[in-house]
Amino acid sequence: MKRQLFLASSISAIAGCAGISNKLNDNPTIHKIIGSAQGLDHAVIGTRGRARLYSERDIDRNFRTNGFDTPSDSTYGGLARDGFARYALAVDGEVERPHHFSLAQLRALASLRQITRHDCVEGWSAIGEWNGVPLARFLALVRPTARARYVVFHCFDRAPDGTPYYESLDIVEAAHPQTLLALDLNGKPLDPAHGAPVRLRIPTQLGYKSAKWIKRIQLAARLEGIFGGGGGYWEDNGYEWYAGI
């Protein structure tokens, strides 16, 4: 009886501890204050330098997957059945030359193969060889207007509640020479689990920035008005838009 009472009171004391943490975390003012570090991190770290390049023997042949399941909608399923022969990547928004790129056209532009480490926000890392179109080269082709400040990636996948996945990069940072529209992983065309047919691969930021299953790239002057306005699915759900740390 005494022991039960002791256990019950310790459990409630311990639950109280989590309760205080939860209350502090749920306070909107505190939440806003602690979110202010992001701007400082972005200014100090940014997207400078070069991600480390690895050699063949470092590659994870069984590259880990994460995030949402492979898109199950009929559009994506139909495209995948034909080996993405009818796939077209739409580019629109603040560009002088809105355009659709077929997979063959993208393949013709592919000019960068690099072995880099993928760092997940959860803490794990995996190394893969990526081949694709340098985003800087791609952007130069579509000619962003002077108003364009962000590159927004719209994807085929959705959260279980139906919210579409999307991501965005600052247009200057998007032109970092190691940022790729990846088409191949470890010498083979991307499989559906790894983001086929086109995904982003940005080794200087955390994995959630490297959006999979891209269907449309939008150049935008501002992020407000695009879904939740946070600049990405995870950003709309509390994660930092600047994912360099």
Binding site: T47, R48, G49
Partner: peptide, 10 residues
């Protein structure tokens, strides 16, 4: 742990 800093200070 930061990929941004790793790129800056490998």
């Amino acid at each position: 742990l930061s990929p941004g800093i790793d790129a800056l200070a490998g």
